[in-house]
Nucleic acid binder design. Sequence first.
DNA 1: AAATGAATGTGATCTATGTCACAGTTTCTA
DNA 2: TAGAAACTGTGACATAGATCACATTCATTT
Lengths: 193, 193
Amino acid sequence: MFKFLQQKVNDTISVSEEEFDYAKTLFLPKKLRKRRFILEEGEPCIYTTFVEKGLLRSYTIDEKGNEHILQFALEGWWSGDLYSFLTGEPSEYNIEALEDSELLLITKESWDQLLREVPAFERYFRILIQNNLIATQRRLMGTFSTTAEERYQKMLKEFPDVIQRVPLHMIASYLGVTRETLSRIRSQIASGS
Amino acid sequence: MFKFLQQKVNDTISVSEEEFDYAKTLFLPKKLRKRRFILEEGEPCIYTTFVEKGLLRSYTIDEKGNEHILQFALEGWWSGDLYSFLTGEPSEYNIEALEDSELLLITKESWDQLLREVPAFERYFRILIQNNLIATQRRLMGTFSTTAEERYQKMLKEFPDVIQRVPLHMIASYLGVTRETLSRIRSQIASGS
DNA sequence: AAATGAATGTGATCTATGTCACAGTTTCTA
DNA sequence: TAGAAACTGTGACATAGATCACATTCATTT
């Protein structure tokens, strides 16, 4: 059950068996069925989530009712609303399973404890967040400097598995365009260049 | 000279005088005149920078020659290209002083050493990066869900000092619009609503 | 197996923002 | 202090992408 998490953590830093055994005690396993939510807008984000199996998405809904996807989380990824998790403030995000999923949850208290007692985890999360920041900065600059088609092509290369497993209107929402626009982009790619 | 950095760090975590004295030895003070660069596209980002005084901007230039500003760094902020700094790969960013500035620089080697020897700094940077990630995620979602005018109004509230000190075409570039569009938004705000 | 809802495609039209061009003003700098 | 950059504004026009509307196919659920 924790094999996958352990492997992921050890890809980044080195943690002894004892340290990891301790870490295990702080996580809560949970199964989440397709179309069920682990976080809904307005409630505080109690857990940070590691995805053992399945696929989550986190998204906001704007005043017009449009969804905007912040992140897809496949196996081996983390999910949650960092701000709400840290502050206890109500979240602006919804986190939904797009497939039947198996998750490992950790509360703020346990997380604080883990970082305090096992400094290697402080380092692990620093690196995790760092890589996330780098990727998010790139995505932001990409929305300024590239067309919707270029962003779609890039996503096809970088996350082919996400594209396979997720409906197109969600890909569109992740790219920051409407489903109609993505549909036209796709038919254009299919026909011509 | 290090008073400001010390204060900033102590706002977040607590570091003893001894620890901070050690940290000081790892930073290199540098003055950078207006319009001079501390990083240019194509070269590796050798330093992460703390701004003691002045104002920096980091930006990329796309294929069409348009600039896109990732960040303004005022007094008390950090600047650099995280990816290039960590990997040694050539940077895609330029970092330029918009005013005569006083900086504290730290190399990757010294930074690694600092995080290794003073765990409080590992924590400090984790929190710093975490807050940066939260802000960047918000900015990204904002570009998807709000108009250029809304983003400008929000920036006026959040960073009035940046707006005061930076030319409008750079504000436009930060917001992801052209200078002409921002100019029209401003005259519209001035006249009507 | 039927029925409901989710997902996708596509045409017609609209709009926010980009592009290009020129002019006036301010700020460096030699 | 003169000349050159940098900065800002504004008009005319172009365009990527949004909106709205409808049809079809696919997947779930009872």
